[in-house]
């Protein structure tokens, strides 16, 4: 029990530390350019958290992610641009529409398995991309949507300055991380992981596999839709490119660098990868020479990504320390684990 308290305390400290640094960042950032980069990184990270739920926890390689991101962005952009709706209406609408489309897609795609599922979801992504590109009258085709209004101000709080937009995005990112970590440490999250491990065993134990898959897919799309809407309100110009499968591959790369099926992974991976990209601006177009090769190396040698590798290292050190302390005090291994699983509650 005591150990559990320690663990959840450690987690609280980690979250608190992240929030403190994130809140202070605009004040310590040496220039405004970094702020724009980090804001964009945060928006992408929200979408990557969605992908993490499906790929990492549920174990289904869905490649429709950029399609859902683009869908969220265009729904929100169109509603605020053409119907002059407030951002605070168009954002939830974007999330809801994206979720509904995802549920429909999930209903069909989860009947397929293995490579068929991957190809199916990829095709859904391509279809969304092509429809956005070709539906000129509605989406402006390749020209895209220009001049999307900024997020509407709430009372005295407006979102004109870069800092205020940064905090807006940070709010949604924190919300996403909170929800994801609550799910991951709960029975619901374990149910997803059991499906990743063995679908047939989960079904034999009475778990409704289809319903759980849809649930994860829906939640993931919900946050991806929010990320899309935030992108539209922040960049204020969107083109069909943001729904291109290439963006899905980038999200996948961010996730794998950080570490799938971990809570910190998506944020760590996204920030590092976007940071590297920005600092290697001169090779913007060529960065995939490095990242493409990196993807292969990670998936072969470090399937847990950076966070996974760090956690492995930590347990190794702990084991060694435990061995040293064994004579002094030996907590039962079982208790230790039980506490860990209760996690951040």
């Amino acid at each position: 029990m005591l150990d559990g308290m320690k663990k959840s305390n450690a987690k609280l400290i980690a979250y608190g530390g992240f929030l403190a640094v994130a809140i202070a960042f605009p004040f310590i950032s040496p220039n405004r350019y970094y702020l724009t980069v980090v804001t964009l990184g945060f928006i992408y990270a929200i979408a990557v958290y969605g992908l993490n739920l499906i790929v990492g926890y549920l174990g289904q390689l869905s490649l429709a992610q950029a399609g859902f991101f683009g869908l969220g962005a265009y729904v929100s952009g169109l509603l605020s641009l053409k119907l002059h709706l407030s951002f605070w209406i168009s954002l939830p609408m974007a999330a809801v529409v994206t979720t509904l489309v995802a549920l429909l897609v999930g209903l069909i795609s989860f009947r397929t398995r293995g490579h068929y599922f991957v190809i199916f979801t990829l095709c859904i992504g391509v279809i969304i991309n092509l429809v956005i590109e070709k539906w000129d009258d509605l989406t402006g085709g390749v020209r895209g949507l220009i001049g999307i209004p900024r997020p509407t101000s709430i009372g005295p709080i407006d979102f004109i300055s870069l800092e205020s937009q940064y905090y807006l995005v940070l709010f949604f990112l924190s919300l996403t991380i909170f929800v994801m970590s609550q799910i991951a440490s709960s029975l619901v999250g374990r149910t997803f992981k059991s499906i990743r491990n063995s679908e047939e065993l989960a079904a034999t134990l009475g778990i409704n596999v289809m319903r759980n898959k849809l649930l994860a897919f829906g939640i993931a799309a919900f946050f991806t839709g929010i990320a899309g809407a935030l992108f539209a309100g922040y960049i204020r110009f969107i083109g069909p490119d943001i729904s291109n499968p290439h963006l899905t591959f980038e999200f996948l790369l961010f996730l794998l660098i950080g570490g799938q099926a971990t809570i910190a992974g998506p944020l760590v991976g996204t920030l590092i990868a976007t940071g590297l990209t920005e600092s290697l601006q001169f090779m913007q177009e060529y960065r995939m020479v490095v990242f493409g090769a990196l993807l292969i190396i990670i998936v072969k040698f470090f399937p847990g990504g950076l966070v996974g590798a760090a956690m492995k290292l930590k347990t190794k050190i702990e084991k060694r320390m435990n061995k040293a302390n064994k004579s002094v005090n030996a907590p039962s291994k079982g208790e230790n684990h039980a506490a860990k699983n209760r996690g951040f509650n």
Partner: peptide
């Protein structure tokens, strides 16, 4: 799990 009732909102 199949004997428990909690859903996504309970988890969150």
């Amino acid at each position: 799990r199949s004997k428990t009732k909690m859903g996504m909102l309970d988890a969150i």
